[in-house]
Every structure is written in C-alpha cells, then in structure tokens.
Amino acid sequence: MAEQQNNKGSWPRYRDDAPVNSPAVTLEAFVEQPDAVAVRIEPGADVRELIPHLGRIKLVEIGFPVFGDGRNYSAARILREEGYQGEIRAEGDVLLDQIAFMRRCGVDSFAPAEPIAAEAAERALGFWPEVYQPAADARTPIWAKRHG
C-alpha cells in the first residue's frame, strides 16, 4: 500500500500504478470530452452511463458528500462488475470505519475530507478475517471455503 499527498493531507491508496493527476470532470462533461480520462460520480448519478467509455477511463472519483449516503457503494461495485480496472477513489465524508466495506465494493483509493492515517486504515481493514458474501474484491466467501 502506498500513500499519496494532496493539499488535504495524505490518504491510503491500494494500487501500484501512478496516481492519475488529471482533474475528475463531471459525468456530463466527461461524455462530451473524448480525451478526458478522469470522471466524478455524484451520488444519484447513473454510473452505467460510463459503460460505453470504460476503455479510456483511468480514474473514477466517487463522491460521498455525507457518510450516510451509500449509493456510491453500488456505483463502485457496478463499475467492477462491468470489468473496469482503473482507479476508483472515494472522496469526501469517508470515515475510517467505512473503508473496509468500500474496499470490498471495489474502491482502491481514498481521498477523505478528514485525513486517515495509513496505520489506522491498515488496522480497520485487518478486523475482518473472513467475508460472508462475494463482492467486487477477490475475497473468497465463507460458503466457498466450506465447500472448497
């Protein structure tokens, strides 16, 4: 795991490739700009509108204006189900105790409004040795291990 810096501090990132520094444009703008590679998805936007464009996307920033709005957990997982392999960055009111679920939904970098230290993130992710259901990560659900 690497950390990266911005003017808000540092955040955990779980990818080996170089961070994308292009600004994430709105979904509307992205569809109009054939050379854009980074797009921002607000809660409530239909992430499936990106499906025809997945090939050129390097970064999808998904917004969490308030931590209780869970729509973009579905957005992240849908992107992975559609085969998207670029970066999915959770931005905004992203709390330490949410990142394990976000990771499972396919988020692989975080830009929280309040910085999360790498050690704290590591610890939060380490609480869960097993999972009960398949999601967008590679973890094997318990039922598969039982009948492996």
């Binding site: 931590f67 209780g68 709005d69 869970g70 957990y73 579905s74 997982r77 949410q98 394990a100 679920f101 976000m102 499972r104 939904c105 869960w128 999972v131 009960y132 259901q133 999601a135």
Partner: peptide, 8 residues
C-alpha cells in the same frame, strides 16, 4: 451480515 454494499 456485514454486506459491504448494503450497510448504508
């Protein structure tokens, strides 16, 4: 239980 997508 601990469904990652459906906890919020």
């Amino acid at each position: 239980s601990f469904h990652p997508e459906f906890s919020y």
